[in-house]
Amino acid sequence: MRVDVDRTKCCGSGMCALTEPQVFDQSEQDGTVVLLCPHPLEELWDSVEECVRLCPSQAISLDGSALLTDRMP
């Protein structure tokens, strides 16, 4: 899995940093997303996918995300 973030879309809600702090952080200046780890370990995939679902501005995307789309309601 590869994680991508779009800081121009990010509205700084902090949901990702709250949900998976091993992968996401927030900038001290403007609160926008900081990607700590673009290739997270498999054990973190579920929570990274949850971050994608929780993000209110669709600023996080995943590569090879067939799994995710399958599970989306």
């Binding site: 700084g12 927030q26 403007d30 609160g31």
Partner: peptide, 13 residues
């Protein structure tokens, strides 16, 4: 405006 405030309300802050 929003940018000014998001930094004030990060999870860490």
């Amino acid at each position: 405006f929003r940018k000014l405030f998001t930094g004030e309300f990060t999870v860490r802050r």
